[in-house]
Amino acid sequence: MEDDANPEYGMSPDDTATRIAELRKLANILGRKAVADEVRISRGRLTSILAGGALPTGMTTAMARLRIAANVARQGHERKLSELRKSVKNLGLER
């Protein structure tokens, strides 16, 4: 039987848990409003998904965009932290 002949019945429980965990992580990095706006759902629905009360369906493309945005945000935070450490060292404020 060809793979194309197998119907898709939605996400498995493991996939759902993985997606919810990733949404939590992205919401912590980017904020709930940004995540909800990107996946085009209300903040209330996002809250429900994060609490396990709703299923995170149909977000594949938006999740990919969110991963990119989170990486960019993380790199910006790391760059700022590096600059702060250099400033602390240059000012002689290290312990």
Rank of each mutant, 00 (worst) to 15 (best):
T60A: 11
I29S: 02
K80E: 12
M1G: 14
M59S: 00
V72A: 04
R45H: 11
A34R: 07
D4G: 03
D37A: 10
A27R: 04
S12Y: 08
M59T: 07
A54F: 02
K33A: 09
A5K: 07
L26I: 12
I49M: 14
S42V: 05
V39F: 01
A69Y: 02
A62G: 11
M63N: 03
G76W: 06
L23E: 03
L66S: 10
K25D: 11
V72Y: 03
G76S: 05
E78V: 06
L91R: 10
V35N: 00
M59Q: 04
M11C: 02
R95Y: 08
M1T: 12
A54V: 04
K25I: 05
E83M: 14
G76Y: 12
L84R: 11
I68K: 10
G10F: 10
R45E: 05
R85H: 13
G92V: 08
T18Q: 11
Q75N: 06
Y9H: 13
E2W: 10
G10V: 01
E8K: 06
M63A: 09
I29E: 04
K33R: 14
A62R: 05
S87Q: 12
R95S: 12
L66F: 04
A51C: 04
T61E: 11
G52F: 08
A70T: 03
R74I: 10
A36G: 05
P56F: 08
Q75Y: 10
R85K: 15
E38V: 13
L46K: 06
S42A: 08
E38C: 14
P56Q: 03
L84D: 01
R24K: 15
T57Q: 11
Q75A: 15
A17R: 15
E38F: 02
V88W: 10
E94D: 15
D4Y: 04
K80L: 10
L30W: 06
T47W: 06
R45F: 11
G76C: 06
R67E: 13
S42H: 05
A54T: 02
S87H: 11
N90K: 14
E22L: 13
P56K: 06
L93A: 09
A17T: 14
L84V: 11
A51E: 14
I68C: 01
S87P: 01
M11H: 09
D15H: 14
T16M: 09
A64Y: 08
D15I: 03
R79Y: 10
L55A: 12
G53D: 11
G31Q: 04
R19E: 07
R67W: 11
E83Q: 15
L26K: 04
N90M: 13
I41Y: 04
S48W: 01
A64K: 14
V39P: 00
V39I: 15
A36D: 00
L50M: 08
E22I: 07
G10T: 00
V72T: 14
G31D: 03
A5G: 00
K86A: 09
I68G: 02
S82T: 15
G52D: 06
R95N: 13
T47G: 15
A17L: 09
R19L: 15
A73V: 10
I68Q: 12
L55H: 00
K86R: 14
R40N: 07
E8C: 02
L84S: 07
G52M: 12
L30I: 08
G53W: 05
A5R: 10
N28K: 09
